[in-house]
């Protein structure tokens, strides 16, 4: 295991069950390897359908791998047997899914409090933290709205802080800022960087947006088309703290952008 790696993926492979008996199902992911250092913000880009969500599902242990190894600290995820999975590994891995997966029967605030409630950690202090997160992402005044009364971007933000509120050391994010306008997106990115800077979490951040991947990441992985594997790796040496708006014109940024752009295309 690489020094300081908190998460290690080795020769990971995935194929879903065949749709008809006897039929061969294609490999979605094959021979995928990388590791994530503790406290790192790793971004992953790749074409649509490459298997990014599938990869995160296997890391979060909501889905099984067909081969290879997913190791979190010293724990190796079980292969094949869905029953042996430990989703979230006892709240060590938070997962902000691509769909917001809000509970429709809970209000915005009710959804944010949900993890605290089921973990039995809802008290004055955690409640105050939830409230401050609600305000931090601009949802103040919408606490009592049900999901169907929120915009797509507001739902995304709700799902984002629902994971932040219980403070898991590792957070997987699947295009968390996909459904918001450019302005809000920049704000949320800045918020994320600030929160990450304070808490030094380990974050694996999947996105379609190359600029976002560079602006946020310590390192960017480019995945190939299915069967997905790591096509290339880019260290982002732009110093922190970063200014999300100003970064786009830096020469390092432009070079990286063009290099990654050429690979994803």
């Amino acid at each position: 295991m690489a020094a300081g790696a908190i998460l290690e993926i080795r020769g990971l492979a995935k194929r879903f069950r065949a749709r008809a008996p006897g039929a061969e199902s294609p490999w979605i992911i094959r021979d995928l390897s990388f590791s994530v250092r503790e406290g790192e913000l790793l971004t992953i880009v790749g074409p649509s359908g490459a298997g990014k969500t599938t990869l995160l599902n296997m890391i979060a242990q909501t889905d099984t791998a067909s081969g290879g190894e997913v190791r979190f600290r010293a724990q190796v995820a079980p292969l094949g047997d869905a029953k042996a999975l430990r989703p979230g590994l006892s709240r060590q891995i938070g997962y902000i899914t691509q769909d917001d997966n809000l509970l429709p029967w809970r209000t915005c605030l009710g959804n944010v409090l949900f993890p605290l409630e089921v973990q039995g950690r809802l008290d004055g202090q955690t409640r105050a933290r939830a409230q401050s997160l609600v305000e931090a992402v601009g949802l103040a005044g919408f606490e009592n709205h049900y999901p169907h009364e929120l915009s797509g971007g507001m739902r995304k933000r709700t799902s984002l802080i629902r994971t932040l509120v219980y403070d898991p050391p590792v957070i997987l994010m699947d295009e968390p800022f996909g459904a918001v306008d450019a302005q809000t997106r920049a704000l949320l990115q800045a918020d994320l960087l600030r929160l990450w800077g304070e808490g030094r979490k380990t974050i694996v951040f999947v996105t379609h947006d190359i600029a976002e991947a560079i602006a946020l990441g310590d390192r960017t992985l480019v995945l190939s088309r299915a069967p997905a594997s790591v096509k290339s790796e880019h260290l982002i040496s732009i110093p922190r703290p970063r200014d999300i708006g100003g970064i786009l014109t830096r020469p390092e940024f432009v070079t990286l952008y063009q290099a990654i752009r050429a690979e994803v295309a």
């Binding site: 989703p87 891995i93 938070g94 997962y95 997966n101 509970l103 993890p115 089921v118």
Partner: peptide
């Protein structure tokens, strides 16, 4: 997917039944 979300957040079987399956 809602069940998986809850499980990732460490909801036990009882919490899943009460907060997701029932509503």
């Amino acid at each position: 997917r809602l069940v998986q979300m809850a499980q990732v957040m460490d909801a036990n079987e009882h919490a899943v039944a009460r907060h997701i399956v029932f509503p």
